[in-house]
Design a protein around this nucleic acid. Structure first.
Lengths: 372, 372
DNA sequence: GTAGTGACCGTAAACGTTTACGGAGCCTTT
DNA sequence: AAAGGCTCCGTAAACGTTTACGGTCACTAC
């Protein structure tokens, strides 16, 4: 009831020293199994809970963490980075020093970036594995040298990553299915585009989309998925063919960021006005289309929050030595013409926040939160 | 470049003591204006940023904060409380001691609860102002005694509250409008129910809903809003009358938690199957209706996150003495049959997390995150 | 019998900030 | 001239944990 119980209290109760108590609680070598047991017992009984502030203060380590992401062709990765920054600052001095390493496009230079991170003695790595297969061995190598790796946005299966932070793909796909079904009045033919069928995230979205349609809108039909391999011309060509082959297509769900080629193809096929398009993420070109009503809705994957949580998981591991969640899955947000401005404001304030926080000495600014 | 700059570094550079530097940086009395200027100047130049860990550790205050909310008739407030708990634990020892004071129903006992909080020497209060007008003077009184008050879910205008955490009402109303328009193919007659027109949140939702309909679906018509004053029979009766007067009603947006009376009224009026209902929040009875397809969608106000952020804002103020955001607005989540399970899982894991964290001594469990 | 080797444990100094206390000057009052 | 008050500032002890270092004991090996 009275005060908080500390290491000293435990030590006192057992007639031993805080050093021993600490070693016992942390499985450090050099402590008699008997005393360890007693320490664990007593600390549990007394309801000991460590003081994080003291812990952080005493382990004066300045973490160096590397953030390996795609260069900001779209705003997505800029926002991920700003989320990481923001969460890092929030911890004050202990907000590790962060090194950003970007690679120009998918699959190019990411291994080199990873190598640089390892060479640079990073204590942890936040990573977008654009080619998961290629990075597997690198991640394993890192984990052998005790360097934890957190994947953002996309998983790297079978590697020894510490955790994955991403949007919940099932919830995304299912939401798209729900909406498509309702928007189209439970009937019609719909299509889906994705990057490649061997990327877990995309097959999961597909599966959830398909299942939702089958379950709640059984009269609708889903065409075979279109793979664009993240190549814009490929997306355009395949969609043109799709539209030619199915002039009665009612809707299309674009799971990748590359929605512009799809829109262009629809426009060129004179289909844009009667096609219901559900896109993914939010970037300037898409914003116009939403405002113009050409794209009905987009599923926003909250890059800023992904960044924040990725940092938080990594930080927690580096400090506590444990990882509370292997998989952090976010609920996506739905953006439509009416609430579009809300998200644009959030994005903008996120950017200014990042700048303000970087410039400020003590964080005196009264900018607003950016919890998207 | 090298190491972090500390109070000592600044003091050393100026040939003064850390005590003076600290007083200067914090506007404490007893420091020469001249030296204060120089300290501020140098600390800015050297890029000083305080070490939160040290600060937390040294100001050995154990905050006592009171959480005044509605008794858990619905799960909403349970989740708010669990969010507060969770964020409090995350800070380790410094996770203030939290006293929950609940009042049985809207407007009953909340002033007494507030009084008790003040009498109990709380350092801060997190509050659901169910009757904002009545609480105004109490909040003012608290602020006079330097006790910060954070409102969750609903604002108490014209009071001296420190901050407000809630879902973004504009985004909610606009989303409902967008969806209603699309679900109903841009035409038809729709209605809206709310608690009372003098509650800011509800009029904002109404305004956003109306504006979105007008802007993007001008052919639709919106009936006058129905006020239920949070009284279930009143909601039922008024809806029965509404349905009788408008048998061709196409959709209804329920902004309050009291969606069950509306559903019941629709059922009794034989309207349930051709009415598009968009509800608010998520609770067992509603879940059934969503699964059964009677309710098309619900706008989830993320109570857990509201709780988390409310605590975070308050904590920040108590520690730093400043409040980074007066208004924290969350984007709502859209729940539909397909992604319903995702949210139910999150809710469940939130509950077990709260219990696990409370029981654990050091948080050894590897439960999963609950970022909704 | 002495040196060496472990296993186990205590000691004390960090970590950076906050804050109660006291002291040095200087000016006013009696 | 002594006493008191004021302003400004230095000192040092906290806060609770981590960790490098050293010490004590028992046991083995020569």
């Amino acid at each position: 009831m009275s005060r908080r119980v500390t290491l000293f209290d435990i030590a006192d109760a057992l007639g031993i020293s805080t050093g021993t108590v600490h070693r016992a609680l942390h499985d450090h070598p050099g402590v008699n199994p008997m005393t360890r047991m007693r320490v664990l017992q007593v600390s549990k009984n007394m309801g000991y809970r460590p003081n994080m502030a003291a812990r952080l203060l005493s382990q004066k380590k300045q973490f160096r963490i590397s953030v390996n992401t795609l260069k900001g062709t779209t705003s997505f990765w800029d926002e991920v980075r700003s989320g990481i920054q923001e969460e890092a600052q929030a911890l004050g001095t202990h907000g590790a020093e962060i090194e950003f390493r970007t690679f120009p496009c998918l699959g190019e230079g990411e291994e080199e970036a990873f190598e640089a991170a390892l060479a640079g003695e990073s204590d942890g790595i936040i990573l977008f594995p654009s080619r998961p297969r290629n990075l597997r061995i690198w991640i394993r190598r890192a984990s052998r040298s005790k360097v934890p790796v957190v994947c953002v946005s996309t998983d790297a299966p079978e590697s020894n990553r510490l955790a994955v932070v991403s949007v919940d793909t099932m919830a995304s796909g299912a939401l798209a299915g729900d909406l498509m079904g309702r928007f189209l009045n439970h009937r019609g033919k719909v299509a889906i585009t994705l990057s490649a069928l061997d990327i877990t995230e995309h097959t999961e979205k597909l599966a959830a989309f398909e299942k939702t349609l089958k379950t709640f809108h059984p009269e609708m039909s889903l065409l075979d998925p279109i793979e664009d391999h993240d190549v814009e011309p490929e997306a355009y060509d395949k969609c043109r063919k799709l539209f030619a082959a199915h002039p009665d297509l009612a809707g299309i769900y674009v799971t990748t960021e590359a929605s512009m080629p799809v829109i262009q193809a629809a426009k060129d096929a004179q289909l844009l006005d009667r096609l219901t398009i559900i896109a993914t993420d939010l970037f300037p070109a898409l914003i116009e289309q939403i405002r113009a009503g050409k794209v009905t809705a987009t599923i926003y994957q909250r890059p800023h929050t992904q960044g924040r949580l990725a940092f938080r998981v990594l930080q927690e591991f580096l400090v506590h030595g444990k990882c509370s969640a292997f998989r952090v899955a976010l609920a996506p947000h739905l953006v439509m013409p009416g609430n579009l401005d809300f998200f644009l404001e959030k994005q903008a304030s996120g950017r200014t926040n990042a700048r303000a926080a970087a410039a400020a000495s003590d964080g005196p600014s009264n900018f607003s939160y950016n919890y998207d």
